[in-house]
Design a protein around this nucleic acid. Structure first.
Lengths: 232, 232
DNA sequence: GTCTATAGCATGATAGAC
DNA sequence: GTCTATCATGCTATAGAC
């Protein structure tokens, strides 16, 4: 899938064309993992699933997923213990589904701009899209950032691989192909990822400072624009 | 306390003069919070306390503090449940002590460079010192980053205040006093903190890329050096 | 100062009525 | 599909012997 967007597109531009947002991410979760659900009626699912995810983020993002008991989750959703277990197969499974949705969404992003020729424009578009997707799915991204280290060993290695994959994509666009520039391109790509992550990890801080998502994206895009020059 | 260091000092320079390192941080913990300890013999304390902190970081930084049981901690330290409780008053207290030590160490850093006149040199020294302290105390900093949101409400507000305090110190050095530049200086300071945090939060990644602490510090110092120019 | 043993409670998960 | 009731387990914290 290709996204048609102007250079230095805004959040408003992006929202009009993105295939990822808060509502269809639920159907994504359904398709990908929740075939294990015992509940079959679509009406019940579309009413209760959003409640379950919302409540999970409210509780887990405040006090940690491990500290969130399923009884807390029942209280927040209005479901009973037995009712809840119609939607999830275990507590760990709930975390794994969230992890999978975020991972899959992140991996989609670079594909949207595969047809842009200019490497720096492609780089800038990828950066912006990442900020904007993380804005649409902020609780999801925060959850995965904080909780992915407690997953099973195999899931953790998938998470690391996905992180390296995205970093390599950025580094390739920064490096220009010269193998001598590779280490510095990797370091610059790491810096970019750190800046992006701060947007959804420390969201409360930017809200308090009244920084809009557009001015944040412009700011890191400007810094990233200086990186190739500084690498020489 | 003032630290005498050359401009753009290295990690080796810093280690020679810093009042904070892995060994004296334990006596810091003792002085500040562990008066609640029932164990009074210094010999027993200096043998078991490091074991307790090390094991806490090994376990909590891998699977989360909440998921780490005190039985796990006993197995790792060789102490029994009863023995352990001679050193801590509760599990939450253990986290609070670590939090307090890190917070206190961070707040010390800006004071070391109060006598540097040039604002940008002061800014650069503060940035470097922060990276180097976080390198010496990496497991401590990682722990606080990941676990501080699960603390009590009052402790959490202390944590936020400390973060804003450090950011304001950086922003003041970047902004140059003009109130019109203030929002952009705050945003630039946020970016700097995000870059620094990545060093101890994603330490495994930089280790894998074989990035040394000196080249990391030089890299973010270079980026930060461009920020005032970009703000105009 | 350190141990063993246990109290007291909360948790994740399931069985079975409706 | 959703509920209530219950099981087995694992937890923090403490009491008391040595």
């Amino acid at each position: 899938m290709r996204l048609d967007l102007p250079p230095r597109f805004s959040f408003a531009d992006f929202k009009k064309v993105t295939p990822i947002d808060g509502s269809n991410v639920l159907s994504m979760a359904l398709e990908r993992q929740l075939h294990r659900m015992t509940v079959k009626r679509a009406a019940a699912a579309s009413e209760n699933l959003p409640k379950i995810f919302d409540a999970t983020f409210r509780l887990a993002n405040k006090k940690g997923f491990e500290a969130m008991s399923l009884r807390d989750l029942c209280k927040e959703t209005g479901l009973s213990m037995g009712g809840l277990y119609g939607y999830i197969t275990s507590k760990d499974d709930l975390a794994a589904v969230i992890e999978d949705v975020v991972r899959h969404s992140s991996n989609e992003i670079p594909l949207w701009f595969s047809e842009i020729d200019d490497p720096f424009e492609k780089f800038d578009a990828t950066l912006r899209a990442h900020v904007f997707v993380s804005e649409l799915l902020q609780p999801w991204f925060f959850f995965v950032f904080m909780e992915s280290r407690l997953l099973s060993a195999t899931q953790r290695s998938v998470a690391k691989a996905s992180e390296y994959h995205f970093q390599n994509a950025l580094a390739a666009l920064l490096g220009g192909g010269d193998p001598e520039d590779e280490p510095r391109a990797q370091l610059a790509a790491s810096h970019c990822m750190a800046l992006i992550q701060d947007w959804y990890v420390k969201r409360w801080k930017y809200r308090h400072q009244k920084v809009s998502v557009d001015s944040f994206a412009n700011s890191i895009s400007e810094i990233a624009g200086q990186l190739p020059r500084m690498m020489r």
